[in-house]
Nucleic acid binder design. Structure first.
Lengths: 350, 350
DNA sequence: GTCGTTTCTGTTAGCGGTAACATCAAAGGG
DNA sequence: CCCTTTGATGTTACCGCTAACAGAAACGAC
């Protein structure tokens, strides 16, 4: 019973593991970092010891020993509600696992502010920076970062660019998939609300929608309105759409905030959702389940993406010196169509 | 010319500062930590050097040297959208400054899950845990934590309890203030939507509202409905309120999500906000500005509160051993009434 | 003037890891 | 059979900072 006694300080160190496994701390370190040159048998022994003791490397010590081996900056402004929290959770998780230190810095979505924030990040010693939307496509941020010789990962940017790594979903395919879903429900007049024009993801989503609509059989009609990714722009676009002579039976908004706006517009008009109007969003942010009825939407694994971004940078930073990692990574992660209560079959009354 | 040479690694260390100030690193450390026993003149010299070099302590090293100077756990479930991100940002900031390590752990808002999550936190070596709402009032979490001899800070719990420190605003006063604002706008029939009954903050807010209403001059009528802090419950409560024979001219929802629901209900009824109905919320989460019109609400400095929570724990953990800190802290932070577009004078038509 | 005291400042050691090099055994090569 | 070569591990030193203690002035008091 006096076995797994680790009492007070939850501090299981690498030495404890080493002792139990009968190896040196260095070997344990190697195993933890998946370094090559450890015999399989030894690796196994160590892993067992790690598990038995519930060892988790001390991020602070690791970061210290690795010589600033990873200070990763994270620029954020005010992406649609709930996005950031999930993003942070993922990033934090990744940071913990890779032993990187996260520096987070807020900025407004304008070049001036971005430049300043990037400056602070660099001053803080960041050797890599993560750019969640919409900064991943900001020239100001990108160029400033390039000057600083800092590795960059853009998250959820619609298209891949050669000067930064990317973690994203296939916006085109996702939008197409959603459109197909609507078509399968029988909708033939479908409204689409575009996203902000400064993000390539908007264009990709529109393209996915249009492509699928054109391929629809029997033919379907697309009604396209502009939007800005905000609740209000969604509401207004929906009002335009719904006051048309022949309004759509379904509206596909390029993000959840706008879809929430559509919901409000529908309610205002006394339209039942999903009875009289189907509404779908994109992103699966928390507003998707905060509103009623809950939104059918496309889920981006935000946390996972953030974690991936941290990993990419962490690896890149560590690998520095050898193969000057000139080749940016383009990691595509899988999205999911989440069907909730806001969509239904097209009303039969034609 | 070989002067301010700090080149490549943006790494200004405590030694650099020490050299420039002509003192030992230890003295610099003391200055940075506001430790007593440093001559004013010396302190000044050091501070100048710090400024000149742009020195910022290395969090990793600090945390390491302080001996696990703090592994702080953070339990989160799914508080209303946007709350968590702001909270995390604050907590992260605090962690950075105090050199604490943040362990975050997700759970569902039920005893089972809370207990498990707390367990993981303790296993991870947390010596203090932060409980954002609604966990700050969960018996399961609190008792589990107590058994583990872990310091606890409950954030935004409505009332202070003797077994945990607290960081919160004065919900009573804030609600009273908001009510006064509505009264001053001339409203005399005011609807109030209560928050979830498992949080004492709900009761405090109600109390603040009622107290002020009773004191109103000329007399005012309060119409109170139950709510659950969710969008949907707000929408439903508002529908009950607005379909009354004599509906209120203003509705005060206990949080922003519910206020957003009220907005939808109003739109659905064709009521202009704020022309025909004034709607106000509470918390100033991101949904407050995502909807339209933007909500008048009470701002809680969430980030600041999270940072304070980290600080309290960090101090407590460091101070361990000497004065066994048996006395929990009760830190009240100041809220602000944020007036936006969703409120206006009472309609004159009586 | 000598000896506490008090007040400031410097030294030493070590937090938990890891880079870089040293070591040592087994494997080939001539 | 000796000498590389290779692969698997152990050693040493140090990352940047801070406890804990040691030392050095400054100041009275006797």
């Amino acid at each position: 019973m006096a076995d797994s006694r680790k009492d007070r300080k939850g501090a299981v160190t690498i030495h404890d593991v080493a002792r139990r496994a009968g190896v040196s701390p260095m070997t344990v370190s190697r195993v933890m970092n998946e370094a090559p040159g450890v015999k399989d048998a030894t690796r196994k022994t160590v892993q067992d010891a790690v598990e038995a003791l519930g060892y988790a490397p001390n991020a602070a010590a690791r970061s210290l020993a690795r010589q600033g081996g990873g200070r990763i900056g994270l620029l954020y402004s005010n992406p649609s509600a709930g996005y950031l929290s999930e993003f942070l959770v993922g990033a934090l998780d990744g940071a913990q696992k890779t032993g990187a230190l996260l520096l987070i810095e807020k900025c407004d979505p304008n070049p001036e502010s971005e430049r300043a924030a990037v400056g602070r990040l660099i001053a803080g010693g960041a050797s890599g920076v993560i750019l969640p939307p919409p900064h991943g496509e900001s020239y100001a941020a990108l160029s400033e970062l390039k000057d600083g010789e800092v590795a960059v990962v853009a998250v959820a940017a619609g298209r891949f660019r050669s000067d930064a790594s990317a973690v994203r979903i296939d916006d085109f395919a996702a939008a197409a998939e959603m459109t197909r879903h609507l078509l399968e429900l029988g909708h033939r007049r479908i409204g689409f609300i575009k996203g902000a024009s400064n993000q390539t993801a908007s264009a990709e989503r529109l393209l996915g929608f249009e492509t699928e609509m054109r391929a629809a059989e029997p033919a379907a009609t697309a009604l396209i309105e502009a939007g800005e990714f905000t609740y209000r722009s969604g509401l207004e676009a929906a009002e335009r759409l719904l006051s048309a002579r022949r309004p759509p039976t379904a509206i596909f908004a390029s993000n959840d905030d706008m879809a929430a706006g559509v919901l409000t517009a529908a309610h205002r008009k006394g339209l039942d959702v999903p009875g009289a109007l189907t509404v779908v969003g994109f992103d699966d942010t928390s507003i998707a389940t905060a509103v009623w009825p809950e939104l059918t939407t496309v889920r981006q694994p935000v946390a996972e993406m953030a974690e991936a971004a941290v990993r990419i940078l962490s690896d890149d930073i560590r690998g520095r010196g050898q193969a000057r990692s000139d080749a940016p990574v383009d990691r595509l992660v899988t999205h999911t169509l989440v069907v909730r209560d806001s969509c239904g079959p097209a009303p039969t009354a034609d």
